[in-house]
Every structure is written in C-alpha cells, then in structure tokens.
Nucleic acid binder design. Sequence first.
DNA 1: AGACAACTGTACCACGAGTCAAGCAATGTC
DNA 2: GACATTGCTTGACTCGTGGTACAGTTGTCT
Lengths: 210, 210
Amino acid sequence: MSMTTDQLPARTATRERILAAAYDAIVEKGFEATSIEEIATAVKISRAGFFYHFPDKNALARALIERQIIEEGDMLAGIMSRAAQLSDDPLQQILIMMRLMAERYVELPGGYTGCILASTIFQDRLFDAEVRAANRKANLAFRDRFVAQFAAIATAYPPRDPIDPGEMADMLNAVITGAIVVSRGLREPQVLVRQVLLARQMVKAVFQHA
Amino acid sequence: MSMTTDQLPARTATRERILAAAYDAIVEKGFEATSIEEIATAVKISRAGFFYHFPDKNALARALIERQIIEEGDMLAGIMSRAAQLSDDPLQQILIMMRLMAERYVELPGGYTGCILASTIFQDRLFDAEVRAANRKANLAFRDRFVAQFAAIATAYPPRDPIDPGEMADMLNAVITGAIVVSRGLREPQVLVRQVLLARQMVKAVFQHA
DNA sequence: AGACAACTGTACCACGAGTCAAGCAATGTC
DNA sequence: GACATTGCTTGACTCGTGGTACAGTTGTCT
C-alpha cells in the first residue's frame, strides 16, 4: 500500500499529454477531423499506445468533456470569488464577472472554453449515451453555478417582468456558445468579446431599469 | 436552342431530392455521421450516382448552406413583413418578430433553421475555403437583415448606453444558435423557445427603459 | 529473479470517401 | 434505320481511419 500513491505519474502523465494534444488538435480542426494516428504521433506513442489509455474515441471525447467541466468550473470559481471581493451587490458581481470573462476572451485569441463541448454536441449521434450524459452534465453545472446568483439579483432588483434565474443562467451559456459559433462563422474573432459585453449591458438594463 | 430550357428538370429534381434527404439526415445526426451511402439509399440511387451530382461531400455542404440562406431569408422576410403589418413601431416590430420566431420553434419539435450552418462550422477545417465562405455569407446575411431594424429602434428609443446595431443583430443570431446548442446539450427542447422569449424580454428592457 | 505497468509492432477487419470505366435509356442527327 | 450524344446509373476498385487481437519489449518495484 506504499506504492499506490506513486504509481499514477507515468500512466496519468501520458494520459494528460494525450488529452492536451487532442484538445489542441480538436479545437483547431474539429473532433472528426482529428485522427488517432495524429494524436499518437504528437504525443510520440504508437496508435496501439493510444488504445492502451482509451478504449475508443468516445472515451477520449468523454474525458475531454469531463476535463472541460473542471477547468471551466475553476475559471468561473476564480472569476466569481474575484467579483465577490470587489462588490457585495449581486448585480454588480455579475457585471464584474462578465467583464472579466470578456477580458479573458480578449487574451485567448482563438481559444475559448466550452468550445469542445459545443463541437461535439452537433455530432453527438456518433457518440454513446455516456458522452451525451457528460455533455448534459457540463451544461447543468454551468446553470447551477449561476442560478443562485440570478435569484439573488432578482430579489434585490426586481425586474419589470418576472425572470426565471435558471433561464437567465442558460442565457449566459447560450450567448457565449452562440457567440463562439457566430464568431467563427464570420471569421471575426472580436465578435465573441463584444457579444459578452453586449450581454452584460442587457443584463444591466433588465435589472437596473430604474 | 429549343431543348436547353427543358433539360433541367430531371437533373435538378434528383439534386433536390438529394439535398432534402441529406438535410433531414444531417439535422438528426450531424454532417459527419451521415454517410453518402445512406443519402443515396434514401433517394434510391447508387453511391456513385450521388457523386454524379456532387463532386464531393464539401459540395453537398456548400449547397446545403446556400439553400439554407435562401430558406432562412424567406422565413425571416415573411416574419418581418407580418410584423410590419401589425405595427409601425420598429421596436414593436422586433418584439413581434421574436415572438413569431419563438412560436415557430414550438411548432418544429427538433427542427431549427440555421442548425446545419452551425454544425458545419466547428468542423470546417474539414472543408474547403468555399464552404467557409458560404458559411460566412450566411451569417452576414443574417446581420444585414437586422441592422437597419435595430438602427431604427435605437433612433426611436435611444438606449441608456449606446448600442451598435450590427452587434445587436449578431446577438440575435448568437442567442438562437447558442440556445440550440444548449438546448441539445441539456436535452431540454423547450430551452430554445424560452431563450428566444427571454432575449425578447431583454431587448425590450434595453430600449424601453423609461 | 520475477511481476507488473506501460508500452511497441504487426497483422487484421469494417466502413466510409472518392475514382473510374463501362452500361443503359432517351433524345437527337444523318 | 443506323448511330451518336447526353443524362444518369452501376459495380468494382483504392485508400484512410477506427477498432481488435495479440505477441513481444522495456523499465521499475519487490
């Protein structure tokens, strides 16, 4: 029982390298367009070596989504706690958060969190039920993270027409995801940032209508 | 010179049937997941028959996008003219249009216009420059369609903070696209309709802040 | 010395994209 | 009536990729 703590590194190290290489390639070219061969070469292992770590490509997709949930969660948690430092008001917090998010998207020229998730959804018939479940889980995690925030805002700043906090949380998710798609479609990277800021402005208008 | 007018039908008829079959299959399962074999079978021709009409799968994607631009344009034009009948006020028109769009999405349980576009974007490295161009064109067409409308609204109802009409148009596009993605990801079809209505509410709040 | 983890190499199958030469049917021309 | 062209179709091929199976190799821990 003394070795269990140290036996992870070798295995997980390669696994992580596979995930990192796959992520880069997929973000650039899409899931289907990225071959296992290619990932294996990038990580300097053989094709069979890949299958040692992942039973099939679905498993890779699943792992990437799970990974994305964690990373996105960490990022949002960071932004949330930073916003909490800067203001006690729930509306101000959201506005700060959205600005921080926009700033993040300026920094990452072509990278954007959540993109892999979206890219897999449309083809998800290719995948098995577990991938779909993982994906659903990611979206629910996003919603849960913001529901309480919007509920607090709605209490402090009652909107003219009633607003469901869950729907508002989904709206944030939808705007970001949609902006990524439109941004890529238009080949105008700045669209993503502007859309987040515009959404921010709209959130402000909805709750701060006085 | 007497026969040139009549030689189209047979050819275009099969072509249209291919497009229709491909559309149905792709909306359901995604572009990559839909094989040419499958499309050919649905249209009752052979695989090679397909390649007579389209040089490759990229050409199919391109044709579908072009087709989508036209259909979406027709739909939006219909909704726009209907809204113009019901109100002279540009803001009211948009609000009516968004409600009509939401109603449309209630009717189509799983179908949504623009979905094919989005589904191809993430994998667009697979495709050639022409597909990307067609896709970009589709997004620009959407923007152009709404820019004037939002400009008129901003004049009649000056928002608290200045708003770019083009960005506002992109927002509409982004919300719908993003809502489709999130909707599918969550496996909650009603999300799409609710998001459109929520976006409507937000548009209202932004311009009608008095 | 032995066991196990983490691979490599190779040979194999299934299937989908795309190519090609040939075939058929209807329409036209001589 | 012979024949040629055109629109459309077919079946047989190649090739890349996912996935399987399995035997062998190397390094590390005990």
